[in-house]
Write a protein that binds this DNA or RNA. Structure first.
Length: 706
RNA sequence: GCGGAUGUGGCGGAAUUGGUAGACGCGCUAGAUUUAGGUUCUAGUGUCUUCGGACGUGGGGGUUCAAGUCCCUUCAUCCGCACCA
């Protein structure tokens, strides 16, 4: 994605976004990584407020930046999750959470001097219970609402809030802080005067930055009211049979299911769901509010003050404003004659000959945009380019993309749940709406594979991690210095925890085939894998057994195929074809390679136990085993394939096919239960009808005994 | 707090539509081979047992001839989101 013949098209796609009105600049309080000296998208800041890349605490800065309007696609990105049957529920939920849809209403409260305070609420049915309002400290109306008596307190609070980071403001500590502005507003449904407060738990960038507070029915509002003695609690719904009074309320009453509205004018007597519908109509009739849906998803900030990235292909002209670079001038290449001065501002900004250009529209001197794009842009469409990777005329051929897409199976880590996987869905939908392709969703099936974890020794007293080499007796691990017993557990590998495994050492000792077999066998692909040297040994043993089995077989002179198979031969043949069936199903289904490997082991065991090594069925078994081993242990399988006299590569050999006849059994063990208890089995002909089976069961020794 | 997932031997994990729970592997026990250790091979390995059996898939209850699987309830662990109005 860093090659100009790729990012040329990344820039072209950016221009498509620009043309569609989906790329724009705005000044906003953004996430600034002080270590990498760049801004970051919301998705790239973890819940502790740290940069996904540098790990530094992110600061807020007011900067003019480029954004992509992913919010325009919030609803589609949410509803189309239902189409993704092949995705883990967990990932879909994380995306739904991140998009954060809330359905409710905007309602306008009036101040004394007739200014509008617009609030957003998901509970417009509780409007009659609103007894105060809270604005975000940054809310533009705070200044005019604040009375002289309260001004000092309000300004102090605003300063404190501004100094706090987003994380501090939303930290675990739920104790409420806030200040009364001295101002009042009118509740539009009942004309009550309600005091207006400011508090930092109300966030300027969600909803409208202002809320109505309903202490009787919202626990946060209740807590706030208690903390500040706002004891006007108006109850507006209650269980029908058990009206709740204001006075004894110990906590907010928020059981919506059984509530019936009271003290609420036109809503009285309605259930909560009905009141929610009715109130919207009422607000609209009265001209005081409308239905509204909000999303937590924010537009995607894509500007980066980094050198390594795709230059944003626009030119800033003093006369024409922001002008896109004409398609014919793409790519805007990253200059190579830059000077890096450690960490600091992007070196692009200092490169005058690159920055200074003529405006493509009017020809007057202008300046290039020096920000580059978030690298997640590059990876949001590469799967489309894969369909037509060498096209130098267009981004990709529509026919080819429609033919190949969507991706049948995507494999990736859970860490991309709300990053790459959301961005790629967004890009696919935008490019579809630009008429460039016909698919709605890029990835049909998603497998989030687990991580490899290492065996970790930790002294629970000192908290120190101990390298495994220092542990003398692994069955009773002790701290070599203090003799204290150690905790043993599995955790993500890390140098500081001495729990890593050097792949080179494993490969040198056992070979790549063993390592691969171990990884596939140890756990199903979506689960974390606990690296255990003893299990690696186990795989090594298995491959050695197969090796010996084939070497022994190579010395035997096989007999020609018999017309009539003995019972032993039939049994072996059934084992062979059961293995083919099961391994094939593991490949075609959910990639449960752990059970596929175990099927290979079973087949190997069956062959190992089989006496007549010269039988043609035995030979079939050996050939089948090697052929099915090939995808798991390609080197050994190739070697063994030659050992049995083949000259072509095993990897070109056809995959073994199931012979349904081989799976048929003449006799099956029938489970006998007497009075609901399993008592044993009897052998019965597999083609018996119900009456015959009942007869056999009644005559059986088990039936006599119980 | 909200949402989701998962609970099966000493361990990792298997078990089609409800039909012999614990496949396969690790580990462990005993024996054989070996000067010894390792390797390799054989047998055993859910718990209890008066050797007849009984019990057993986090706990409790239910449906069924039959439940790891279906229903109700409860507990625990992990993950995501979290003052989102």
């Amino acid at each position: 994605t860093c090659a100009p013949d790729y990012y040329r098209w990344t820039q072209w796609i950016f221009l498509q976004f620009l043309e569609a009105g989906l790329a724009y600049q705005k000044e906003a309080a953004v996430n600034w990584d002080p270590v990498d000296q760049t801004v970051l998208a919301n998705e790239q800041v973890d819940s502790d407020g740290r940069s996904w890349r540098s790990g530094a605490m992110v600061e807020r800065r007011l900067l003019r930046q480029w954004f992509l309007k992913i919010t325009d696609y919030a609803e589609q990105l949410l509803t189309d999750l239902d189409k993704l049957d092949g995705w883990p529920e967990r990932v879909k939920l994380m995306q739904a959470n991140w998009i954060g849809k809330s359905v409710g209403a905007r309602v306008t409260f009036k101040t004394k001097d007739d200014q509008d305070i617009v609030i957003f609420t998901t509970r417009p049915d509780t409007l009659w219970g609103a007894t105060f309002m809270v604005l975000s400290p940054e809310h533009p109306l705070v200044e005019s609402l604040t009375t002289e008596a309260q001004r000092a307190a309000v300004e102090t609070y605003q300063k404190e809030a501004a100094a706090k980071s987003e994380v501090e403001r939303t930290a675990d500590d739920r104790s409420k802080t806030g200040v009364f502005t001295g101002g009042y507003a009118t509740n539009p449904v009942n004309g009550e005067q309600v005091p207006v407060w400011i508090a930092d738990y109300v966030l300027m960038d969600y909803g409208t930055g202002a809320i109505m507070a309903v202490p009787a029915h919202d626990q946060r509002d209740f807590d706030f009211a208690q903390a500040f003695g706002l004891d006007i609690v108006q109850v507006v719904f209650a269980p029908d049979a058990d009206p709740v009074e204001a006075a004894p309320l110990a906590e907010a009453y928020s059981d919506n299911a059984s509530g019936v509205l009271q003290n609420s004018g036109p809503l009285d007597g309605l259930t909560v769901p009905k009141a929610k519908k009715r109130v919207i109509k009422y607000l609209e009739e009265q001209g005081i509010g409308t239905a509204q849906t909000t999303y937590r998803l924010r537009d995607w900030l894509i500007s980066r003050q980094r050198y390594w990235g795709v230059p944003i292909p626009v030119i800033h002209c003093p006369d024409c404003g922001t002008v896109p670079v004409p398609e014919a001038d793409l790519p805007v290449e990253l200059p190579e004659d830059v000077t890096f001065a450690g960490r600091g501002p992007s070196p692009l900004a200092k490169l005058d000959h690159w920055v200074n250009v003529d405006c493509p529209t009017c020809g007057t001197p202008a300046k290039r945009e020096t920000d580059t794009m978030d690298t997640f842009i590059d990876s949001s469409w590469y799967f489309l380019r894969y369909c037509d990777a060498n096209n130098d005329q267009q981004v990709f051929d529509k026919g080819k993309v429609n033919d190949w897409m969507a991706v049948d199976q995507y494999v990736g880590g859970i860490e991309h749940a709300i990053l790459h996987l959301l961005y790629s869905r967004f890009f696919t939908k935008v490019l579809r709406d630009r008429g460039l392709l016909n698919v709605d969703e890029p990835f049909k099936r998603l497998l989030t594979q687990g991580m490899v974890q290492g065996m970790t020794y930790k002294n629970p007293v000192s908290g120190k991690y101990i390298p495994s080499e220092s542990v003398a007796d692994p069955s009773h691990p002790m701290d070599p210095e203090t003799g204290e017993p150690l905790e043993v557990f599995y955790e993500k590998m890390s140098k500081s925890k001495y729990n890593g495994t050097a792949p080179g050492a494993v490969l040198a000792k056992y070979g790549a085939d063993t390592a691969r077999m171990f990884v596939l066998f140890k756990a199903p692909p979506e689960k974390d894998l606990e690296w255990d040297d003893a299990d690696v040994e186990g795989q090594f043993r298995f491959l050695n057994r197969v090796w010996r089995l084939v070497q022994e077989f190579a010395l035997v002179e096989p007999k020609p195929a018999a017309n009539e198979l003995s019972k032993a031969e039939k049994d072996l043949r059934r084992a062979i074809h059961t293995a083919i069936k099961d391994v094939t199903e593991d490949f075609e289904g959910d990639y449960q390679f752990n059970t596929a490997v175990s099927e290979l082991m079973k087949l190997s065991n069956a062959l190992s136990d089989y006496q007549d090594k010269a039988s043609a069925v035995y030979e079939e078994g050996i050939r089948t085993l090697i052929a099915m081993l090939a995808p798991f242990a390609p080197h050994i399988a190739e070697e063994l394939w030659q050992a049995i006299g083949e000259t072509e590569s095993v990897h070109r050999a056809p995959w073994p096919q199931v012979d349904p006849d081989a799976l048929v059994v003449d006799e099956i063990p029938l489970v006998i239960q007497v009075m609901g208890k399993t008592r044993g089995t009897i052998q019965v002909p597999s083609k018996s009808d119900k009456a015959a089976l009942e007869q056999l069961a009644k005559e059986s020794e088990l039936a006599q005994r119980y």
